[in-house]
């Protein structure tokens, strides 16, 4: 018992705790409103994963940037870039879908490296650099594809939304790939340097870590993850649209912050998962809340203004609750963290 308590108190001090609490709340809400039997049916879980996988992965991608002390709000429209490049290379050049996807991923990495040049090398404010690049990428998207069109071969999108062994959503493979890549990266020097750079680039530099180089790695990883998310989006919608997912830039940022990230040096991938999960569960809960109301009160015709108001209010309240869970511990932990990584950094130097 004491052990359980001890491990819980240790968990309480991890960055993911806030996100975990919020996610648990949203999940419970969703399960109650949808009914446990419906929620846990393989079909419904499969849909939950397949339609939210792109968002989940870009929150992870945004999280990697946040760890390294920067961010990219053009990540949303980059998803559309991956989508149009994939669809158009298949449609116009006759490539296979797999080859087209590789081009899509490459496009996301190129866009990310451009952002890296602006933010890390030229040192523009990350928010405004992302804002400016949103315009550029949107224009490029319309150049590549002037009107929504295209299609993905049926076996591919069917595979994406299928259930492996009858109960495992196939879309989870994408998440598994992302997590595997991250598990590997965590063991490399990058895994520790990224926190040092994010927490305090000056100290990191003094310790012999190049912040610019570490951020380049972070941006490329973010580009790779964005590419994977873009392929998921393409498989999910089975077609191309040059103007989609733009809002996800700021939304992914909000999700990551709700999950427990701060701007720099703090947060784990679990934070991203919980933060994204919280937003998704809240939206889903709102669907079932109004679905339930429409059943219970015959003739009820609620305008959809209420859906958005309730969803956004819960998200705002979720942000506020982080005050209770995070306050105090965060600053202390960051100092600890810096000390820890700085020591390692010095030994490297």
């Amino acid at each position: 018992m004491a052990q359980v308590r001890e491990s819980f108190s240790r968990f309480r001090r991890t960055p993911a705790f806030t996100g975990f609490v919020l996610f648990t709340f949203a999940l419970t809400l969703n399960v109650i409103l949808q009914g446990p039997a419906n929620f846990f049916s393989p079909n419904s879980l499969g849909i939950l994963f397949s339609s939210n996988m792109p968002f989940l992965i870009i929150v992870i991608a945004q999280g990697v940037l946040l760890m390294s002390g920067t961010m990219d709000i053009s990540i949303g429209i980059q998803l559309a870039l991956v989508n149009v490049v994939t669809i158009m290379t298949v449609q116009e050049w006759g490539l296979s879908f797999v080859m087209g996807s590789l081009f899509g991923v490459a496009a996301a990495i190129v866009a990310s490296v451009v952002l890296w040049v602006l933010i890390s090398v030229i040192r523009l404010p990350d928010l405004l650099a992302g804002f400016a690049m949103t315009y550029v990428i949107r224009g490029v998207n319309v150049f590549i594809m002037n009107i929504p069109q295209g299609t993905v071969a049926r076996p591919f999108w069917q595979a994406y939304s299928s259930l492996l062994l009858g109960f495992i959503p196939a879309s989870i493979i994408a998440l598994a790939v992302v997590l595997a890549i991250w598990a590997y990266l965590k063991r490399t020097p990058f895994g520790t340097h990224v926190y040092a750079v994010g927490a305090n680039p000056q100290n990191a530099f003094a310790a012999g870590i190049s912040p610019v180089k570490v951020q380049l790695q972070a941006f490329m990883i973010k580009g790779l993850f964005t590419g994977i998310a873009g392929i998921c989006l393409t498989l999910m919608t089975a077609s191309g649209n040059p103007l989609q997912a733009e809002d996800w830039g700021l939304r992914s940022l909000a999700a990551a912050i709700i999950g427990g990230f701060t701007f720099g040096g703090w947060g784990t991938i679990a934070c991203a998962v919980f933060g994204a999960g919280f937003l998704v569960m809240i939206q889903n809960s709102v669907y079932f809340l109004f679905n339930w109301l429409a059943n219970v009160i015959p003739g009820l015709m609620v305008t959809s203004f209420w859906h958005n108001f309730i969803a956004d209010s819960i998200i705002f309240l979720g942000l506020l609750t982080t005050i209770i869970t995070v306050r105090g511990q965060r600053e202390a932990l960051r100092i600890n963290l810096e000390k820890k990584y700085m020591k390692r950094g010095e030994s490297i130097a």
């Binding site: 404010p125 400016a132 315009y135 550029v136 224009g139 490029v140």
Partner: peptide, 27 residues
């Protein structure tokens, strides 16, 4: 056209930002 306008707007904003307000480098 709208696409050219958006690309131009983004690039000009980047150019203007480059002249201004660069954060201090770590060195």
């Amino acid at each position: 056209s709208q696409r050219v306008r958006e690309i131009t707007l983004g690039l000009v904003l980047v150019l203007i930002l480059v002249m201004y307000n660069r954060r201090k480098g770590v060195r």
